[in-house]
């Protein structure tokens, strides 16, 4: 559905993005992650034909973004950061204006606007002047306008920025509901949001794609998993035994209330739990608790965007 190959954009000598490539299949929700200023918006602006890239190509729905810009724009719903609307128009006027710009006929316009007002829970606000709306409501109006005409691809630039937690949840819920039916790219620098909604990730750092893949793949490949063990007994001895279990990379010993607490890092793709239980028992420890946790996305993100390189 979306294929990006080797996109590079320079502002003068400054490279905003370099050799960005990724793919999004139909129905996928791609979380586009990266610290501020890493090139998320630039990539999205190129994809939506706002400006061309210095080099590289991209195809949306099979149309080249440079050669078939008009077709690409018909197939993409783009919501820029901060959702600029016209504050002097009423919500329904604005939606009708956008629908007409997108070439919707009268009957389809009415039908779609009614549907979207309902779907984005704009409800009674559809006759309110946009300038008087709250930020969250404005975001919903923006999303509704983006959905007009049923574009199969949605590109949402930081759709949750500046919203309160309840509004964030609502917007994310809406986006999640659209996944499967539409192909979605949305950018964010807030990890839990991406984890909640996206099934695929592209992490961008200093203008380069640092990592792409499904949520599972990324956490597994980059992180492995963590096991936490609480046991009664000689901590040192238990740790030595645990470190010998195959697949264990590292075990850090701590203590709490006189109990030994081990944070064990297990290599990706191995299940070391059984071995760990035996090792603890073999070292004469009494196993009280063993809990598994995936490395959180936050760990991966921090490691990729901060420490590496």
């Amino acid at each position: 559905m979306i294929e990006v190959e080797g996109l590079t954009k320079r502002y003068g000598d400054f490279p905003a993005i370099q050799d960005v490539s990724f793919k999004v299949e139909k129905g996928q929700v791609l979380g586009f992650l990266g610290p501020n200023g890493s090139g998320k918006t630039t990539t999205m602006r190129i994809l939506t034909c706002f400006m061309p890239a210095t080099s590289g190509t991209a195809r949306v729905c099979g149309y080249d973004i440079f050669e078939d810009s008009m077709e690409v724009r018909r197939n993409i719903g783009y919501m820029p950061e901060n959702v600029p609307l016209y504050p002097n128009l009423r919500v329904n006027e604005y939606l009708s204006y956008r629908a007409r710009l997108k070439g919707l006929g009268r009957s389809q316009r009415r039908k779609e606007i009614a549907e979207l007002v309902d779907r984005c829970s704009i409800g009674d606000f559809d006759r309110v002047i946009i300038g008087k709306l709250s930020k969250g409501m404005r975001q919903r109006v923006g999303l509704a306008a983006t959905l007009l005409g049923g574009p199969p691809v949605l590109v949402l630039d930081e759709p949750t920025v500046g919203l309160d937690p309840n509004q964030i949840r609502e917007i994310l819920g809406l986006i999640k509901g659209l996944g499967g039916e539409r192909t979605i790219i949305f950018s964010s620098h807030i990890l839990p949001e991406v984890e909640m909604v996206a099934d695929h990730l592209a992490i961008i750092r200093e203008g380069r794609i640092a990592l792409t893949g499904s949520l599972e793949q990324i956490t597994r490949a980059a992180g492995g998993s963590k096991v936490r063990i609480e046991a009664r007994g000689d901590g040192q001895k238990i740790r030595d035994a645990v470190e010998k279990v195959s697949g264990v990379r590292k075990a850090v010993l701590g203590s709490r209330d006189g109990l030994a607490v081990l944070e064990v890092e297990v290599a990706a793709g191995t299940d070391a739990r059984e071995g760990l239980v035996k090792a603890v028992a073999g070292a004469g420890g009494g196993l009280l608790e063993l809990s598994c946790g995936r490395t959180s996305l936050a760990d991966v993100f921090v490691r990729i965007t901060a420490t590496e390189g």
Partner: peptide, 20 residues
């Protein structure tokens, strides 16, 4: 959404032409 038609030129489905 209205029924989608597949365009011959396009590799994937796009929305039907709605412009009058």
């Amino acid at each position: 959404m209205a029924s989608e038609t597949s365009m011959t030129a396009a590799a994937c489905e796009t929305h039907p032409a709605r412009r009058s």
